[in-house]
Design a protein around this nucleic acid. Structure first.
Lengths: 362, 362
DNA sequence: CCTCCGCGTGTTAGCGATAACAACCCCCTC
DNA sequence: GAGGGGGTTGTTATCGCTAACACGCGGAGG
């Protein structure tokens, strides 16, 4: 308990002296080596306790070449998706006895990611997770230091690293199919920004289902994930509704934009789901309480984070023994969440009401 | 460019050999020591480039006793507030040349915070920021390792550490005063959970303004920050409205609960702001697009994060020279944001319409 | 009874950097 | 021309820890 009077934190040698052993024995106790007499171990532990000793992990890292720290490079951790993913990563890492050092980028581009990776590897991290949802960022993974274990979240097919991602295409399919099943002739789409892999995947799944069903594929409205951009897109769609265009269903690439769109519809007197049905993506905690509660596609970000750590630790452990590991690709399934922002078409608009209709309505 | 064939990352000595100098000279170049001949410097830099050398910060930390890493202990970084604060911290730290190692706690209690701090100090961080909004967590700051620079966000008055916080009491005053100024006789309150300092501050400011104005102070409804808890509280208030109780204005302790309350009011046919006015707290990005757009109190989380780093770095630098620093308290002002969820009272309900009314309305 | 093995422990040698000091060169001053 | 100071570089010690090896001791096996 009593702190060292010399005003300098105690080191292993101090503990050794108090316990009457060599510093190596202290080290053995700390590292659970089998060959230490029980009595000795107790004496050492008492000395540790008495001095308030804490081992210096820096020195340990220097000699073992393992810092037990993982690096995370992420884009804007203020957003719900990245924040949840990073949270999952941190929890899983800590449970496995690893620290997490984070670099949160404001803008994401190859240079930024590259720098961040260099920065982290200089610090001596044992592995890196890159939450790199943009195409340009994914490219930066190609110039990872050789031998550095790494995992990418949503990394597309870029680089020679393992990838963990949510099946965006399938999520978009679920959303679109749901709307078609409700009898809507076609589905409009407000997408995320161009460079994002997630945005692309969602466009792809949406387009695929429409095409397969032989429905017209409307022009894509592009947003930037923000509620405001959804609001603006919503205004444009509302104008089309007023102009008599046959817009009855939209699939919005995330819940925040969907919120903006809902707001625009409310202002313009376009009833949701009465006149137009809306499906979002993400299932943020707020979605359930939108007006109306938002039907959406849930992404399990926590699972993504945990899976990242699993994959990364396997690589790290393998790297110790062999020095080759297989590049893997893990896909976390999305889930459809039915709420009140969608409803079967009832008006004069044509189109077969096919398949089972998920129970909902105001 | 070409990596070392020996399969081992190059060290300073390797660079020295290539450049034909001693390793110390390499160190000097890397640390911008003045006394290196320009020509030598160039040769060293070329060698570094040629070998792809990166300095080992672990070794550097061992001898300098500075890791250039800051520790952050935070509660649930999935929430908008903590996430934004941590983001601000990370940005500011990186600009100052520091790494950030983060521990995100699931549940917050004295033990958890204590452990996290021990964990980080073992890792050798130069300073710690604790985002500890709960009373119980703030107490854990009392047993920081001596000599460890630290800053608390919302740390109340606990421990012997500097504190950076948003003026919660003032924010609550702004919200409550705004509602009274609109002519409401009194203001109800949906508060955050009991142990939270922020929740307490908001209750305090609210109560203070009501008391000063000689208005009745209604019973506090307590939530847990989640939209659902706001929804439940909203249902209770709606029932009171239907029962004829004189509820015309509520101040909700955060925007997410306000969203839940809005939803409850919509379901129960209680018009906002027609029948009841609502003010939130935080100004999350979504608030502007709620139905109706939410009048709220903005907290500048980014500023809080940056301020934390300022204070912490000052302590770290001072600790090098002198070993005593003053415990400081920094308060970031909140800001009132007028939107459409509040409106002057018009009905038969009494109460003087005092003060300037901030322009708004549906 | 001697060898050999394995346990418990101590001793020594690094890990890769910085700090402190020593050495040298050159130029200036007296 | 000797002494001194500053710029440039090299040498050595050190940070706190773990790995590798060395050592003494006791019991098993020949």
């Amino acid at each position: 308990m009593g702190p060292n009077p010399g005003h300098r934190p105690p080191v292993m040698a101090d503990v050794a002296k108090v316990a009457g052993v060599s510093h190596q024995t202290v080290s053995r106790v700390l590292n659970d080596h089998p060959n230490v007499r029980a009595e000795t171990r107790i004496r050492v532990l008492q000395a540790i306790d008495q001095l308030g000793y804490r081992r210096n992990l820096t020195a340990r890292a220097l000699v073992t070449k393992h810092s037990r720290t993982l690096g995370v490079v992420s884009f804007d951790t203020t957003l719900y998706g990245p924040a949840s993913t990073v949270y999952g990563i941190e929890q899983a890492a800590r449970e496995a006895g690893y620290f997490v050092s984070i670099v949160s980028l404001r803008t994401i581009d190859r240079t930024g990611v590259h720098e961040a990776i260099g920065y982290l590897s200089e610090q001596g991290v044992d592995g890196i997770v890159v939450v790199a949802p943009q195409r340009s960022a994914a490219q930066a993974l190609e110039d990872l230091p050789t031998g550095m274990p790494a995992v990418a979240v949503e990394g597309g097919h870029a680089g020679d690293v393992s990838v963990v991602c949510v099946d965006q295409v399938e999520g978009a399919r679920l959303a679109t199919r749901h709307l078609l099943d409700l009898g809507h002739e076609t589905v409009w789409h407000i997408s995320g920004p161009a460079d994002w892999l997630e945005a692309e995947g969602r466009v792809e799944g949406w387009r695929e289902v429409l095409t397969a069903a032989g429905r017209p594929v409307p022009e894509v409205l592009t947003g930037d994930w923000s509620p405001r951009s959804g609001y603006e897109a919503g205004k444009r769609l509302a104008a089309m509704v007023e102009a008599g265009t046959n817009v009855t269903a939209i699939f919005v690439a995330n819940d925040q934009m969907a919120l903006g769109a809902l707001r625009a519809f409310t202002e313009e007197g376009v009833k949701v789901p009465g006149r137009i049905s809306v499906v979002g993506f993400d299932d943020i905690p707020e979605s359930e309480f939108f007006s109306p509660p938002l039907t959406t596609i849930r992404q399990d970000f926590g699972a993504v984070g945990r899976r990242c750590i699993e994959v990364l630790l396997r690589q790290i452990d393998a790297g110790d023994a062999a020095d080759s590991y297989e590049r893997e690709r893990h896909v976390v399934p999305p889930r459809f969440v039915a709420r009140a922002s969608t409803k079967p078409i009832t008006g004069p608009i044509a189109g077969p009401i096919a398949g089972p209709v998920n129970g909902l309505g105001v």
